[in-house]
Amino acid sequence: MKIKALTAIAAVLLSAPAFVAADEDAELIVNGEIEMVTKTAAAPHLEGALDEVLSGWLFRADETQSLQADDFDNPGMIFVDQGMDDWGTVDGSEGKSCASCHGDVEDSMAGIRAEYPKWNDTAGEVRTMAQMINECRVDRMGAEAHGYTSAKMARMEALISVQSRGMPVNVAIDGPAADMWAQGKEMFYSRTGQLELSCASCHEENYGNRIRSDHLSQGHINGFPVYRLKNAKLTTPHGRFKGCVRDTRAQTYSPGSDDFVALELYVASRGNGLSVEGVSVRN
């Protein structure tokens, strides 16, 4: 069975034609005003790996691409609205909402999504946006932490992400974040699971090729949280990582674990220069 499966995967990968995106020159302008960079020169740290970084949006069919061009066509925006309701809702023992400390989300959260995951001096570690949301909830609001990949977490991440749409992803990989970034990089290139696939096997060596009838993307996370047509709801980066790792038939890491934080830091940095798209629409 294992050999059969491997053969099947190999056949899929090998029979694939050369890079075929839905439309490599398509331009994404959201609401007629936010111009998204979906293709740009790769960051210096990707030298030898990728020359150009391509948003996952370019790998989708026309119909799916168009769903992201208008906030009233993009079903993910429903959850941004819900996140907005949560933003102003008092929760927990301290009688606070997000807005109590952070005011208007449009002002206080602009640019945040572009820089996360990010080194946090106080905590002395790299933190994801989801971890920061839960730190606020537990330490400042006296509320229960959201499940790391839960619907409530996804919609709060969505609300915060939307405030940075169109800004270039700019995740720092040096200084105190360097060790964790190196750990994430090692994970990206390590083959795992019964199928012995690394992230790079699909998303660096075979992007644009077909896996069954789908196009493999470069695996950037600038579009997260993403509204997936597959399950008609928002998916967070760690939720997606878990699915990918599971599909290599490996034991997955836990969402929120140090391993996935390191991987998120590294994967996010591969998309440096692409626009923050979240909430995006993907297959």
Binding site: R210, I211, R212, S213, K230, C244, N283
Partner: peptide, 8 residues
């Protein structure tokens, strides 16, 4: 109607 990739 196509069947997606690994589907994550």
């Amino acid at each position: 109607v196509t069947i997606g990739g690994c589907g994550g």
